[in-house]
Write a protein that binds this DNA or RNA. Structure first.
Lengths: 185, 185
DNA sequence: AATTTATGTCAGCCATATTGACATATTCTC
DNA sequence: GAGAATATGTCAATATGGCTGACATAAATT
């Protein structure tokens, strides 16, 4: 789906300037490898679901919403906004489409009736699962190619890459998603 | 820059349905952890440069172009399009701005005078370095928190996540960038 | 001379994000 | 109970960064 032409003939091609001893603390050589690998890996990772989504006239925004509602049944709109880091106006349009087409529904909060708690429908869960399965295939294949410790290593690397302030929240969010009884309304 | 509220009171909270023995080959439990960690890690990773970019009225599109031109001095427009996976019309607008504001310049190809080879100016290299240093700080901090093998483990994981067909090209692209003599025109 | 290639550009469209203002219902607080 | 704060929704305008299609130019290739 995306091939890369590498016919770049660099005008000069001498040896590396200096081997750049990474002095502790101060400015280091940029981590070009990880920077670029993250770019390409993420590009392919989010590319898988795009094919399915485009058939439904949905985009990545819909995927993100559907994903987190599926993983966090009963999530409040405000919390979803916090996770996605977008404004309610942006969420509004996308969410409305998902609701209108029967992938997501809202229920009035039991304790607080101002809240509109979000749930996936059966249809929504089916789509979310389909998309997750595509991404899981890629992950499973990747981890299978590497050693047995690869899953844990990847986990720890990715967690360490998250803003320190958010890290605990994210880990808890993931853990809670794993324990929530899947329930649609 | 983006905190997450986790006040989601899931309506139900019983134990996990089944421990899901991952039978080889067939449909597995989704890799929720890696899926979500990739989302959050990437969000924070690209978030760092955004702050700097927005002051210059640039976006992520400018960052990507500047990054790959900086890393691949003398790159052809066509190759840049292949790497970014966008159309020339999309590139056009962004590239024009970078050129107009003196971050990038074009030179006619020596062998093939149809080509417009792209180079960063000193100003462009300074900005690219600044952005890369922000991302490098995050990566360096993350890897320092983990063991000594963490860099190699992250590398291998990310490479394995890339489409198999592109993998070799990407690895070569990164390696070549590391050896090219940095030269501005 | 004719074709192909590399690039640029015009025009219009779409998706997704933003800000700001305002509306409504509900809950909380004094 | 009145007033403030909260959760959500909505209207309007705007920006960014993608897209397609059509067309133009110059240079290389055949």
């Amino acid at each position: 789906m995306a091939d890369i032409n590498l016919k770049v003939r660099a005008a000069g091609f001498a040896d590396r300037p200096g081997s750049a001893t990474p002095g502790p603390g101060d400015a280091r050589e940029p981590s070009w490898d990880i920077i670029e690998l993250l770019f390409f890996a993420y590009r392919d990772f989010v590319g898988d679901p795009d094919v399915v989504l485009s058939k439904l006239a949905f985009g990545r925004a819909h995927h993100r919403v559907l994903h987190f509602v599926n993983r966090n049944p009963g999530i409040k709109v405000a919390d979803l906004l916090g996770i996605l880091n977008i404004t309610k106006q942006s969420l509004g349009r996308v969410l409305k489409q998902l609701i209108d087409e029967g992938y997501v529904l809202q229920k009035e909060g039991a304790q607080d009736r101002r809240q509109r708690l979000l749930y996936v429908t059966a249809k929504g869960e089916a789509l979310a699962s389909k998309l997750a399965s595509l991404q899981t295939q890629r992950i499973t294949r990747a981890l299978a190619e590497l050693g047995p410790g690869a899953h844990e290593a990847a986990r720890r690397f990715l967690i360490a890459m998250i803003d320190a302030e958010n890290r605990d929240d994210v880990v808890r969010l993931i853990a809670r998603g794993d324990h929530v009884r899947k329930q649609r309304a």
